[in-house]
């Protein structure tokens, strides 16, 4: 990659200048929309070269946080640094270090994919031929060559998202923000986006990823912060988070619901964990930390004449993580979504 965004800017070096290898550091970050505190004192530290997942339901403050870090919104309190540069005082420097792919495609609908990429590249200081070369290269990389000349109106959601991601990579920034990059995508497009993210990480890019899906954070992120109502409520590796709610849970459906209490007692004895009834009252749900004990449980139930009609193992869902961490479900926490609506009355 010989094209440089600015004279003297060596873009092939993705590992950015760093202070103590910290890519993102925030302290007490706050954003207030009217009377609603969308972000209520967030502290994050993201190491260079890692993928950091920000997990939370709609309205938790994920997008607002990303918009502040990406210099799109001014924080009302606290501070944030990108590779040691303040997002407010040194916004122009920060913009040279980041790429942003939002929930909403940040590309021009009326133009073609090629025109979009050329314009962004020209804005970043590429010469005309270099911009064209870079745009073509990215279109190939993202499998958008056949569609390159068509206006984006005719693009599918997945193609748009891929183009958006390509646009964020023109200047090969050392830090990429991906705000819910796969929300609303079909499974195939989601897998393609995941592959792209993995490739970026291999090349040394630091990624901050927001998502509503524990599975996505689990697949991609080295560390995860769970946020709810504008606050970080838990942080750790995916394994640590899942361990906090039990690795997986076992769901049993009893032939006779009358057996419920007896079954609970057996679970307590064999698995040493507490079984609870699912909301509709038909299934018994219990955390399982040691799957090899399940056989023992099934045998014990059989011996005690507790018949089961169905059993399944389920990985913890975001809802369960939330339930365990906050005591409430991962439903939108308020009417104010952290949407693009920057201005609140």
């Amino acid at each position: 990659m010989s094209a440089t965004a600015y004279p003297g800017l060596v873009t092939s070096a993705r590992r950015a200048p760093s202070h103590n290898d910290v890519a993102i550091q925030t302290q007490g970050l706050v954003k207030q929309f009217g009377s609603h505190r969308a972000v209520d004192g967030i502290d994050l530290t993201v190491q260079t070269g890692t993928v950091f997942g920000v997990l939370g339901p709609n309205g938790a403050g994920k997008t607002t946080t990303v918009r502040m870090l990406a210099t799109l919104l001014r924080p009302d309190g606290g501070r944030a640094r990108i590779f040691g540069h303040d997002v407010v005082k040194e916004e122009h420097v920060v913009r040279q270090l980041i790429g942003v792919t939002g929930q909403y495609a940040s590309v021009d609908e009326t133009l073609s994919a090629l025109e979009n990429l050329i314009i962004f590249a020209r804005l970043l200081g590429f010469s005309r031929p270099a911009a064209k070369r870079k745009a073509t290269e990215l279109l190939e990389q993202f499998g958008l060559v056949e569609a390159a000349k068509r206006p984006l109106k005719h693009f599918s959601g997945g193609m748009r998202r891929r183009l958006d991601l390509a646009a964020s990579l023109i200047a090969t920034p050392p830090l990429i923000f991906l705000d819910e990059p796969t929300t609303g995508l079909d499974p195939r497009s989601r897998a393609q986006v995941w592959d792209t993210i993995r490739r970026l990480v291999r090349e040394g890019t630091t990624v901050l990823l927001t998502t509503q899906y524990l599975d996505e954070a689990d697949q991609l992120a080295d560390r995860i912060a769970v946020i709810d109502r504008g606050r970080v409520i838990a942080e750790g590796t995916a394994d640590e988070l899942k361990a906090s709610v039990g690795q997986s849970s076992l769901h049993l459906r009893l032939a006779d619901p009358e057996d419920g209490a007896r079954a609970q007692a057996i679970v307590a004895r064999v698995l040493r964990s507490e079984a609870t009834f699912s909301p509709e009252g038909k299934r018994l749900v219990m955390p399982v930390s040691d799957p090899s004990r399940i056989a023992d449980l099934l045998v014990a139930l059989k011996e005690n004449d507790v018949d089961i009609v169905e059993f399944s193992m389920q990985k913890p869902t975001l809802d369960e993580v939330f339930l365990a961490l906050t005591g409430h479900e991962a439903t939108p926490s308020s009417e104010v979504e952290d949407s693009k609506g920057v201005e609140q009355p």
């Binding site: 590992r15 200048p17 020209r122």
Partner: peptide, 23 residues
Amino acid sequence: MSLSMTLHHRTSLRQTVQQSFTM
């Protein structure tokens, strides 16, 4: 890890003009 990017605090006049023409 060495400091390998030259960062600028503002755009030059020439860049501003070029960017305006691109827009």
